[in-house]
Nucleic acid binder design. Structure first.
Lengths: 193, 193
DNA sequence: CTATTAGGACTGACCGGTTAGTCCTAATAA
DNA sequence: TTATTAGGACTAACCGGTCAGTCCTAATAG
């Protein structure tokens, strides 16, 4: 049996992703968990704290599931690693019925202008994310899989921007095509001649 | 002197872009305009109607200011047209102090999962936007400025996804670099060998 | 063995404030 | 006379958050 605290965290994580942080009320979380409001505020001092905590949880989960298992899996070639990563992301969103979007992109867009804590943490994570991709690209350039006339940094910045935008398109068009087709275009463009 | 209706539209347009649609209350619009609530509801039957109307206004304004003047300006070469477009978009966000983000991307992310009217209109506009870019790319390929081994459709889809993602990064990192640097990378990648 | 204390988990009632939207009357302007 | 504007009272639902106090368990003191 999970504790109230765990139930709140799990439910809030899901709701924040599905409906956004601001658009998810404390009362909705309460309804979904059966936990009382006073109990929730016993465990978390504010909605902001809960949101920040869930952001941390998402980040470590993403680093484990998406970075370690694909982009940083050095037993595979850089090109195949990137392909696997794209495949995994696409499958993730297909499984979510093209709704929800990227939890990080959503939060960044929603909170950057109104809450510095969220913005700074997200900014830091995006930088980390970009460096993970950059290492993969750098190795791919060294192995002559990727073209060498553009810096690995520039390419990785492009990849992460495109990824976030493509997920936004997936959500708006309710189709994974922008992601699956876009990633293929990226792969072709960065391939060495 | 502008009418109440015009004042509401102008003010709401600005506020929706700055703070988001849901996060802008009717009362805030009232404060900013000096218009009374009964008057606002005399002109608009709901907040949704007001939002949809402002979306239409934004769309036609964007088509006029960004499409006609740069991407569709056939007196310039396709490559230069695309460069000018990027320059204009970057300047736009720099002028906004890297805040706000893209009005269409913001709305798409905020509303796609909860309001079909907004989602469908936005989806349609993104498609139109993509076709405008596609025509420019197509001509650039014909003129041998852009590489011909990837379809103009695929490239234009990539460009629009990347653009939206880059603007998200601009907002999160509070810097135009993701946009200015990313657009240069795109230009290099699609240039013919 | 028993009385006391400490602390974590939890409760239900309640708070002030905000939300979009309604309704009605009356004044004013084209 | 018809479209617009003003003013204000009102509603029902919702918002994040607080409060005093209860329940249970485990450690400690006499």
């Amino acid at each position: 049996m999970s504790t109230s605290k765990e139930k709140v965290i799990d439910s809030a994580q899901e709701l924040f992703h599905l409906k956004g942080f601001q658009n998810t009320s404390i009362d909705t979380i309460l309804e979904h968990t059966g936990v009382t409001k006073s109990n929730l505020y016993y465990h978390f001092k504010s909605k902001e704290e809960l949101g920040l905590l869930i952001l941390e949880k998402r980040i470590s989960e993403y680093e484990r599931r998406f970075f370690s298992e694909t982009l940083e899996n050095t037993s595979i070639s850089p090109e195949q690693r990137l392909k696997n990563y794209y495949k995994k992301v696409t499958a993730y969103h297909k499984n979510l019925d093209c709704r929800n979007g990227c939890p990080f992109g959503n939060l960044a867009l929603e909170m950057s202008d109104i809450n510095e804590k969220f913005r700074l943490r997200l900014s830091e994570f995006f930088n980390h994310w970009q460096r993970i991709i950059e290492l993969c690209i750098k190795e791919g350039i060294k192995q002559k899989q990727f073209r060498s006339d553009i810096s690995s940094k520039a390419i990785s910045q492009l990849i992460i921007s495109h990824l976030e935008g493509a997920i936004l398109m997936v959500k708006t068009h309710r189709s994974t095509i922008p992601l699956s087709s876009g990633s293929k275009t990226i792969m072709k463009l960065i391939k060495s001649a």
